[in-house]
Design a protein around this nucleic acid. Structure first.
Lengths: 250, 250
DNA sequence: GGCTGTCGTTGCGCTAGCGCAAACAGGGCT
DNA sequence: AGCCCTGTTTGCGCTAGCGCAACGACAGCC
């Protein structure tokens, strides 16, 4: 990661369109832009690791990030994906906080605006609405994580994979010349397994089965969703009880 | 849930000892106590449901609460337990927010202090450190939930149950006259299953096995941990690979 | 073109955990 | 005491998903 020079005007535009700074008075936006600096990050690089002291707040302007968690044994769990324009590391608003998870760049290059936590704190003090928005962001992530937890606890693997794919089409979907949706990020079987709490074998088998049914097309680190409706049906399918017996006629 | 009259002096004492209000100037504490009202809740009653508009912030003074999440199909998932003195519903600091989960009382009676969100907002505005602490609380819960998620994704059922029991001894452990630790809340097999993402059958079988090994003693809605060390060993056990072959001598 | 390394597929065997059903246990109530 | 209700245990059968191993496919590189 390194700092680069970019026109301040560009920064202003991104800031203006971010949900976090949106609607602030013009003077405030200029102050925000003035306190920011640009930085870039390249493929597979880490923006920060979970446990690092949260010294910077970022605005992701170009590229995408993976939210990952590393287990004590070194296994990685993917909690999600961030696409521009998104705020990253709001936890830097808290003095002496640590980042709760690891951020990894998955595009050849990502571009971010960065504020050190002192600047962020100063901005929040000056514009208290930023404090409320920070809270809202954190609780939003909490609710999202809760949903993931619930799915992991109650759904079968096939449904979890289906949901992951549906989410990915929303977050990184690129329309396809024949009506499908390409998931526009490098996405290996192992990645999908890490997102759904399963193994790469099961993901592979599931995708193979879906490919035969024309639901998806997949290749090396690449998935194209052909029949989104059917995928959603699988995701929402409530499994019939194991021994479904035909009710006897009266 | 109803409002009751209790001496304000008592409220002051609880507030003073809460992590959230701790260390505020005396005048502030008095203001906080003045804005509060008492309420009680009884066994199995809900303090609020997930999705309800977050209109109150609480301080749990007596009794315990279950944090639960209800799935669309009506299945319940238990995310944890709160014991006094704990803050509840900090999300009320955000205008127009909703509670992200459901709180249920599990003691015959629980006692709480309540502030409506307007009072809370006013207090936060007056003492900005409360905003920082609110953020810290929410991120703390986030990290906890993340840990649960990781465990659910990577650990086997037996380990998850062991961890749940270890946590419960910390949160509701009552020392026993013969060196064990009684978990001092009503805790059925189903509850344990809802906490660990498994079924009551598996919990029952696991506890039975542990009982034979002298690790726990259990009865109707009651578990006593006899050998905490062994439980921790199970919780941390890294399973040997399925086909562990003795390496051949050179 | 050929090599290499990474990623994907799939057959096979296995087991952890599920879920029913039926029996059992104990507390509270009349 | 006897009954009922709720919670617990456990035998049984089953299957979803795991994990190895071996092979295949494709991309990038020299």
């Amino acid at each position: 990661m390194k700092t680069i020079a970019l026109p301040n005007q560009t920064a202003y535009a991104y800031i203006q369109h971010s949900r976090y700074f949106q609607g602030l008075p013009e003077a405030a936006l200029h102050a925000v832009a003035h306190a920011a600096r640009w930085c870039t990050i390249s493929s597979e690089q880490y923006l920060f690791h979970q446990g690092d002291p949260a010294q910077h707040f970022y605005l992701l302007c170009e590229g995408q990030l993976r939210l990952i968690q590393i287990t004590p044994e070194g296994k990685q769990i993917i909690l999600g994906l961030l696409s521009p324009i998104r705020e990253v590391g709001i936890v830097a608003a808290i003095p002496n906080a640590e980042y709760p998870l690891t951020m990894q760049c998955l595009n050849p290059t990502g571009t971010l605006l960065a504020w050190d936590s002192a600047s962020l704190t100063a901005l929040i003090e000056q514009y208290p609405v930023l404090a409320v928005r920070a809270m809202r962001m954190v609780t939003g992530r909490f609710v999202q994580l809760q949903t993931l937890y619930r799915e992991l606890a109650t759904l079968r693997v096939e449904q979890r994979i289906a949901r992951a794919l549906v989410r990915l089409t929303r977050q990184a979907g690129v329309p396809d010349h024949v009506g499908g949706t390409l998931i526009g990020i490098p996405l290996s079987r192992q990645h999908l397994a890490d997102m759904t709490g399963t193994t790469l074998y099961t993901v592979s088998r599931t995708l193979s089965a879906w490919e035969q049914q024309g639901i998806v097309t997949s290749g090396r680190e690449r998935v194209i969703v052909r029949d989104r409706e059917r995928l959603i049906a699988i995701a929402d399918d409530v499994p019939s009880s194991p021994l479904q017996i035909e009710p006897p006629p009266c």
